[in-house]
Amino acid sequence: MAEELYDIEVAVPENPIESFLRMDRMPHIWCPGCGIGTTVNCFARALETSGLDLDKVAIVSGIGCTGRVAGYVRLDSFHTTHGRAIPFASGLKLANPSLKVVVYSGDGDLTAIGGNHFIHAARRNLDMTVILINNFIYGMTGGQVAPTTPIGASASTAPHGSFEEAFNLPFLAESCGAVYVARWTAYHVRHLTKAIKEALLKKGFSFVEILAPCPTLYSRRNKLGDGLDQMVYYKNSSEIKNGAETKSVALDLQGKIIVGKFVDKERPTYIDAMNEHFRKRLGDRYIPSDENKEPNPCLERKSRSAASAGRASF
């Protein structure tokens, strides 16, 4: 009976996001119920509608489960060292400002080992989009405590529960100077897709935190059920509060989740500030780098329209 079923030929329509993926690398390594794949789907749809030239989009990941995203998307992609996606992305962007550079990595990678780079890239307003998947845990290495693990949650290196204060990441990003800050969960696919698109089109350091289930190592260990149960939790406990004060959006174990777009403001990017400063100081003697002379008209146009749209939505 089962064999017969396999014999039935069904025309499977191509998933519209397949063209964004390296299908020759499927299946991916993520566990059933993991939220990362969902976020990649949203990312692909955001890219699709962004109008960006995908040949000019580069994605940089660090190490960890989310760090594998770079390997699965059909873009120029760089899977770097643990915590160092942002400084790699900084060099890439500065060397070739016509690129749209996206950093896609996990909470441990970006805010523990890579925390220093995160805050400095935000301070400099380096023009990049940072998509951070927060699953409250180190997944790849087996469920160790992270700077995002809520107090009380158990982890393999905090078997009696974590007692450290966790980062409130939107607050951290805003404090350091990010010009776009949003938080959504893997449940909020439409909002998330829109937020990623806005972030992609925003000029400057844009930051999207995405809460995503890690059933294998976080929710099961903490008796919070599987991936689906986490999605139910996200659905029931999330409150959309666009423009919320970021200092008020800290998370706690299975508590209320404030989601939304918290920050959308204008500030000169590193490259703009550099060009303007040197032109002022050195006049005609300033020679911008080759790639730096002509801003990409497509990106320019897109980011301006997105910025005004962002302000209007508040």
């Binding site: 400084p87 790699f88 890439l92 220093n116």
Partner: peptide, 23 residues
């Protein structure tokens, strides 16, 4: 383009981003 990074770890990988950026 010169950038004083936040530490040597960042410096030593920023140059690799730049190399893949073509310079």
């Amino acid at each position: 383009i010169f950038i004083q990074m936040e530490d040597e770890i960042a410096s030593s990988i920023a140059i690799q981003g730049a190399a893949w950026g073509g310079i």
